[in-house]
Simulated assay, not measured.
Amino acid sequence: MTSDIETRCRALVRDLELGQPEQVRNVTPLTGGVASDIARFDLAGKTICAKFALPKLKVAEDWHAPVHRNAAEYAWLQFAANVNPAGAVALFGRSPEQHGFAMEFIAGADVYLWKDALLRQAPDRDEVTAVGDLLGRLQAASAAPGFETAAFHNRDDFRALRIEPYLTFTATVHPDLAPVLNGLAEMLYAADAVLVHGDVSPKNILLRGSGPVFLDAECATMGDASFDPAFCLNHLVLKAVHLPASRDRLLGSVETFRAAFARHLDAASGAAVEARIARLLPALMLARIDGKSPVEYLSEASRAIVRDMAIDLLQTPETRLAELVGRVRARLDQLQPPSTTTA
């Protein structure tokens, strides 16, 4: 019996004229995301990854998003390939009818997922520097004169996928923080200075010999330079709570990331962007506890710690990441000694 995802993969192959639909073999659904159906399949001697946008995301809360976002994601991958050919993903075409596209299935002995490496506390391979540097390069390229923005006027999609579930919804859970959270939401919605990926998370970053590969750019839009760095750093801070034995390394990597990213900014704009990151980061911390997409690996005790730290940082914000990290470190050392395990 043919599954729905297999039917869609065959339709995609037909639409893109990649081969005959009946040549599609070994269709395997892939996990890891909530916004799309993703599968790998074999076709004429090569393995292909297909991705189809979903109208309703696979989370407990009622969370919908327009399926045309798939076009922006494909355009973002094309842009990234031009900026960073070494980390490019081979693209095989997109079908508007299927709201899906085909790309290479990235695999190999040197390929690993950054999230997996962090959670198993693998030896550092300087991934943070590579990721921060690539993100800075991509943003700088999108801010350069002549950058074509037509594919990325997607602020309403970004609001549906990021601003509302992370900030606006969380403001309803914490009404005392609503002025701060809604203010950040308005800031993000109004911005259009650089191209924002929208999901720069360790679960969406593969590492291979040529460096990091960013995937899952469904939220791609012109927006604020602070969002992607804050979104990525949030995952490092959350894992510092989850993995006390790696705390010093993870919290130290915040400065490493900032320095690698900031080298692509001038001093004045770098300071302003850092201040916005420092304001946004605790909001995202709180959103991964009480928003529509709660982080899955934290214990209830760790969730309470993150919630308390985030609220404190939102009520008394910092403008520099070093000060923010210092407060996080001091709080964790007080509440959760490094010898404690929360796994």
Rank of each mutant, 00 (worst) to 15 (best):
A275I: 10
M1H: 09
A260I: 11
G326E: 14
L236N: 03
A267M: 06
I106D: 01
E323W: 04
F169T: 01
Q334M: 01
A53T: 13
Q98W: 08
P21A: 05
P66E: 14
E186H: 03
E186Q: 03
V13Q: 10
A171P: 10
V200S: 04
L12R: 00
P337R: 11
V325Y: 12
R120F: 09
A220K: 07
I106V: 15
T47Y: 09
E17K: 15
P29K: 03
F41M: 01
E300T: 00
E148C: 06
A107D: 11
S253Q: 15
V173D: 13
L314V: 07
F101P: 06
T7Y: 10
A35H: 00
P338F: 07
P85Y: 10
K58I: 06
A217T: 04
L43I: 02
R263E: 15
F79N: 04
H153Y: 11
I106Y: 07
P66K: 14
P294T: 05
T340I: 13
Q336W: 10
G132R: 14
P123T: 05
L215F: 07
C49T: 02
H235Q: 12
H153A: 14
F257L: 09
V111I: 11
M1E: 13
P229K: 04
E218G: 09
A330L: 01
L313W: 14
H197M: 13
L335I: 04
L138W: 10
H264S: 13
S253G: 13
D176C: 02
L113V: 10
I48Y: 13
A80N: 05
P317A: 09
A225M: 06
T341N: 09
R25S: 06
T319V: 08
L251D: 05
I277M: 01
G252C: 10
P66T: 10
P202V: 04
V59Q: 08
V128K: 01
N182K: 13
A102D: 03
V83W: 01
D228Q: 01
D15C: 03
E255F: 01
R159H: 15
T129M: 11
L91D: 07
A107F: 05
Y189Q: 13
A86H: 15
D156F: 02
H174R: 08
P337S: 11
E186R: 13
D62R: 14
G326Q: 06
L184N: 09
P96C: 08
F231D: 07
F52C: 00
F158I: 09
I48H: 07
S293C: 07
V67M: 14
M1L: 12
A88C: 01
L18F: 00
L57N: 05
P337W: 05
F214A: 03
D15Y: 04
N84L: 04
L118T: 03
N84M: 02
N182C: 06
S246F: 03
S339L: 14
S36P: 13
L54P: 12
F101T: 00
G146P: 14
P212E: 09
L119V: 03
R8H: 10
R327F: 02
G32W: 06
A72C: 10
D333R: 10
T221D: 04
F52K: 06
G108F: 10
L298E: 07
M187G: 00
T340L: 14
G87V: 14
A310K: 05
V34N: 11
L43A: 07
V273A: 01
C232L: 15
E186W: 02
A53G: 09
S3W: 00
